[in-house]
Simulated scan of single mutants.
Amino acid sequence: MNAYLQDNNQLFQLISEGDETAFRQLFHLYVPHLRAMAFRIIQNESVTEDIIQETFLRLWISRDKLKAIEQPRSWLYRIALYQCFTYLRKQAVHHRAVASLTPVEPVFSPEEDMTYAFMKEQVGIAVQQLPPQAKRIYLLSREQGLKIPEIAAKLSLSPNTVKNSLVRSLHSIRGHLKQLGMLFPLLILWLLKL
């Protein structure tokens, strides 16, 4: 057994007995290598630091199992890699969730594009015909993206008043479109921004 592996095994043995000095020594020995590896994968300095901390935290928490580990270096790298891939997996899930919530402009054929533009114009006309307060609430909701409680606070109204106003506005806009023979689900009106 080479001296390097033996030293690592000895450090793991000491750490398993609760030796904090051995833990610090192992920490200083491996942090530069683990940091370089994690940064190559993550490409984010603060997340890399979090991964290093989590790796050594797991080592300390699992110190009673360290005596059985034959390849300390491989074990540490495996923990750090696991932390990196866990982070990347969570980021991928987060990005997919955000992408699914982000409204995407639909791709239309020229005829559909004209219909869409006409409908958007008619929604604008219907909004202009709303009573002043209803129009203001609708525009705060659609143009500024404010939520009902935010609109209520901004206009000194109750959230129920704002919600009822939005429902009546959408009903009025839908009625305007229905008169023109444009039958669209309420969800389309909700997503359609001027």
Rank of each mutant, 00 (worst) to 15 (best):
A3N: 14
Y4S: 10
L5S: 10
L5R: 11
Q6S: 14
D7A: 05
L11M: 12
L11Q: 08
F12Y: 15
Q13R: 10
L14I: 00
S16C: 04
S16P: 04
E17V: 03
G18A: 05
D19Q: 09
E20V: 10
E20D: 02
R24E: 04
L26A: 14
L26D: 01
Y30N: 05
V31E: 15
V31C: 09
H33I: 06
L34S: 02
L34E: 06
M37R: 12
A38Q: 02
F39I: 00
E45W: 00
V47K: 11
E49P: 00
E49T: 13
D50M: 00
T55I: 01
T55E: 07
F56S: 02
L57K: 12
W60I: 01
S62W: 00
D64I: 01
K65C: 08
K65Q: 11
L66I: 09
K67C: 06
A68L: 12
A68Q: 15
I69Y: 00
Q71F: 10
R73V: 05
S74Q: 11
R78G: 15
A80F: 07
L81C: 06
C84K: 11
C84A: 02
T86P: 05
T86W: 07
R89W: 06
R89S: 14
R89V: 03
R89M: 04
A92V: 05
A92R: 15
L101Y: 06
T102F: 01
V104Q: 02
F108Q: 05
E111P: 00
E111V: 09
E112S: 10
F118R: 13
F118P: 00
M119Q: 14
M119S: 08
M119K: 09
E121K: 14
V123E: 00
V123R: 04
I125S: 06
I125Q: 13
I125N: 06
Q129N: 14
L130D: 06
P131Y: 04
P132V: 12
P132Q: 12
Q133C: 04
A134M: 12
K135G: 09
R136P: 04
R142Y: 08
R142E: 07
E143F: 05
G145Q: 08
G145N: 03
K147F: 07
E150Y: 06
A152E: 10
L155E: 14
S156P: 01
N160I: 05
V162Q: 10
K163G: 01
V167E: 12
V167S: 10
V167G: 04
S169R: 05
G175W: 03
L177S: 10
G181T: 13
L183D: 15
L189A: 07
W190N: 10
L191P: 00
K193M: 04
K193G: 03
